[in-house]
């Protein structure tokens, strides 16, 4: 039954081939053709003044002519029923947000950094710097190991960091292995780490 019905539609879509289709129910096909022929002729005419009414309703201002295709794409609404300008604006905001997050992520990516300080006779070594607002008590180094080194590994964001070691809770010392340093304003020097 379904196959016969499909053949009728095939015959309607390909009138030239329909004559060669032996398996089409010719009575049903004729019934379809009669209805569709009437549909094709059932064109209702609009009022005579429709043209004048349309022309009268056109805005006086000329249609907007936006020179660049990209700008045109952003600003000109398409023919779809929804609000494409809003959809496009939302899409642009989402893309910008995604790009910002990627940039921010790269910028804020925290890298592991190991600090080593040689002090075989010390009983405590701490790390202070711009990354912990020079506050003692937050980053303690472990040690000493067999070589007399105190070690800690922390995660730091990319950028420039100044730091010092506090030995035995009283002595503030620069890192002798630091490649860069600058005066701390108290007669000493801050070590500088750039990552």
């Amino acid at each position: 039954m379904k196959r016969h019905n499909d053949r009728i539609h095939d015959a309607l879509d390909n009138p030239k081939l329909s004559e060669q289709m032996a398996d089409v129910d010719s009575h049903r096909l004729e019934a379809y053709r009669r209805v569709l022929a009437r549909l094709e002729n059932a064109r209702i005419q609009p009022s005579d003044d429709l043209f004048d009414r349309i022309i009268k309703a056109l805005p006086e201002k000329e249609p907007k002519h936006i020179p660049f295709k990209t700008v045109r794409w952003i600003w000109t609404p398409s023919e779809s029923g929804f609000a494409p300008v809003l959809i496009r604006a939302a899409a642009i905001v989402l893309v910008m947000l995604a790009v910002s997050l990627i940039v921010l992520n790269i910028h804020m990516k925290r890298l592991q950094k190991t600090f080593v300080f040689h002090a075989p006779n010390a009983y405590s070594v701490e790390l202070v710097g711009t990354f912990n607002q020079w506050q003692r008590g937050s980053i303690a180094l472990r040690g000493p190991d067999a070589d007399g080194n105190w070690v800690t590994t922390i995660k730091l964001p990319a950028g420039r960091h100044e730091y010092m070691f506090v030995v035995d809770k009283t002595r503030w010392l620069a890192d002798p292995n630091a490649k860069l340093s600058r005066p701390d304003g108290f007669g000493g020097e801050n070590s500088i780490l750039e990552i």
Partner: peptide, 9 residues
């Protein structure tokens, strides 16, 4: 009227 306004697209 819509088409006239959006003719640029």
């Amino acid at each position: 009227v819509t088409a006239y306004r959006r003719l640029d697209s």
